[in-house]
């Protein structure tokens, strides 16, 4: 599995963010996307997850355009954006259950409870997420990473709002995924130590 970006250009409003971007990422690789605020990191990630169409260039998943593959490509994908994607009036458990169904994961109730326990929400599973703290909400959103089998994770600032222990845990989860042959693309200021696998960096200059 290779995600290959060729000649990619994106504009926001009337302004060109970046052009002629080329890179690729394959199994067992971790890609950091760096650059200061407003240089188009989030726009790039949104393009890679098919939320946004590029203004020029192509994104290929195993030699086929991700926009042509559409749902077939999205099966391989996990996206965590700025927002946690949680309904405040639903509990962490209900949120996780819906996320699983939406992505065709047939998770048992036990697996759902386990995931929430592992991520550190033991005892909070049954509360509406609106009463949780920022860090706990982020954890609830991240709990989905423990259930999914999708190889490509695209995470926009996944470490934001997390405390030190949660950061350690997420680092371990990401490293584990890469070591098992997954791929991760993320924007962050946090380093992720890997025991094996390859770390790549892409610097976006505005």
């Amino acid at each position: 599995m290779i995600l290959k970006i060729q000649n990619l250009s994106c504009r926001r409003g009337d302004r060109l963010l970046f052009e002629n971007l080329d890179f690729q990422i394959q199994s067992g690789e971790l890609l950091f996307i760096e650059g200061h605020n407003g240089c188009g990191k989030t726009t790039l990630l949104k393009t890679l997850v098919t939320l946004r169409r590029p203004d020029a260039g192509v994104v290929l998943w195993d030699k086929q355009s991700i926009f042509k593959l559409a749902d077939e490509y999205r099966q391989n994908l996990v996206w965590l954006g700025h927002y946690n994607g949680l309904k405040g009036d639903l509990t962490a458990l209900e949120n996780l259950r819906i996320a699983s169904v939406l992505n065709g994961i047939d998770a048992s109730e036990e697996a759902l409870w386990d995931a929430l326990k592992t991520i550190g929400l033991y005892g909070f599973e049954d509360l509406p997420t609106t009463v949780l703290s920022q860090g706990q909400k982020r954890r609830a959103a991240l709990s989905y990473l423990l259930l999914t089998k999708a190889p490509l994770w695209i995470l926009d600032e996944p470490f934001s709002a997390l405390d030190v222990r949660a950061v350690d845990m997420l680092q371990a989860i990401i490293a584990g995924h890469v070591e098992q042959g997954g791929m991760v693309i993320l924007t962050t200021h946090q380093e992720v130590p890997l025991t094996s696998g390859q770390v790549k960096r892409l610097k976006l200059a505005a």
């Binding site: 997850v49 098919t50 939320l51 749902d71 077939e72 999205r74 099966q75 994908l77 996206w79 954006g81 700025h82 927002y83 946690n84 994607g85 949680l86 309904k87 405040g88 996320a99 939406l102 992505n103 065709g104």
Partner: peptide, 11 residues
């Protein structure tokens, strides 16, 4: 709250 994005990206 971003759940719409999750729906758009579900396959």
């Amino acid at each position: 709250d971003g759940t719409l994005e999750q729906m758009l990206l579900s396959h």
